[in-house]
């Protein structure tokens, strides 16, 4: 009697262990499948002209995503120019004075902003810039990306700056060094690794964002380096090519996906390298 009850409990325990282990395997299946498909199908689309030439018109085979690569770089560069000072500055603010009412309010709002769907941020920037300017532009796309980067940057910066011992800051003040110098040259510099991690993660996120670009940066068949003009980008190219009915474009979507995945992977690896595993998994 007691023996059979014990056997049943042990069997339940074993069964649940197997089930939970199976859950881990199930979690990894889509990841492995996705990586495999992107690498296998993407690699066959890659070539020198794929990286360097413009898209061909519908019906002509060939062409590349060179303008998308340049466009993504332009968008990310502008977004970083707008977003980095604001995001890092906000993070320093939260670390220095985040415990007051103003600080707590800003932190709360930043967390809410982080949860805003990116497509809504795109709508807002459309209303703010695209409509008044009567033009889709790289600038509008970058602003939308910057809005998404800022809360990530603020949070990552605050987390690492708070790890810097306050003694360091106070010792610097005690030596007569000005507050801004102590803040920037002592505290922020000590936290530089962590801030770099936050920057890389925010850039990685922005690099893959598609929805807000659809109606801000739009897209462009040609080369563009002007902030006030519509601009192609890798994620939007992937979307447009993937949903198109042309097999050649669909193949190119996989190639562009491989490029984007490599970019995001490099940025994530850089994020990890910058702190060498000291505080892994920040940013989220």
């Amino acid at each position: 009697m007691t023996q059979s009850r014990w056997a049943r409990r042990a069997a339940t325990d074993a069964a649940m262990t197997w089930l939970c282990g199976l859950a881990v395997a199930v979690t990894l299946v889509p990841l492995v499948s996705l990586l495999w498909m992107v690498v296998a199908r993407g690699a066959s689309a890659l070539s020198w002209s794929f990286l360097t030439s413009l898209p061909k018109p519908v019906g002509e085979v060939g062409g590349g995503v060179g303008n998308g690569i340049i466009g993504s770089a332009l968008l990310l560069g502008l977004a970083a120019t707008i977003g980095l000072p604001v995001g890092i500055g906000a993070g320093l603010f939260l670390a220095a004075r985040g415990d007051g009412t103003a600080g707590r309010t800003v932190r709360f709002l930043a967390e809410i902003l982080a949860g805003v769907p990116s497509v809504v941020a795109g709508l807002a920037v459309y209303a703010l810039l695209v409509r008044p300017m009567h033009r889709f532009s790289a600038l509008a796309g970058s602003l939308a990306l910057a809005i998404l980067m800022v809360p990530m940057l603020a949070r990552g910066t605050e987390e690492t700056v708070r790890m810097v011992p306050r003694d360091l800051f106070e010792a610097s003040l005690g030596l007569g060094v000005a507050e801004w110098k102590s803040g920037l040259l002592i505290v922020a510099r000590t936290a530089a690794g962590g801030i770099t991690t936050a920057v890389c993660l925010a850039l990685a996120r922005a690099a893959g964002e598609t929805a807000p670009l659809l109606f801000t940066a739009l897209g462009n068949q040609f080369w563009n380096l002007r902030p006030d003009q519509p601009t192609a980008s890798l994620p939007v190219l992937i979307f447009n090519y993937a949903v198109s009915p042309y097999p050649d474009w669909q193949k190119q979507a996989w190639g562009a996906a491989l490029l984007l995945l490599v970019l995001v992977g490099v940025l994530n690896a850089a994020a990890r390298l910058a702190t060498r595993g000291r505080f892994a998994g920040g940013g989220r």
């Binding site: 990841l31 990685a204 893959g208 598609t210 994620p235 979307f239 994530n268």
Partner: peptide, 14 residues
């Protein structure tokens, strides 16, 4: 956690 970093447009492609 790497799966979380994959852009959604690539997940959509898959």
């Amino acid at each position: 956690e790497m799966l979380a970093a994959i852009p959604s447009v690539i997940v959509g492609l898959w």
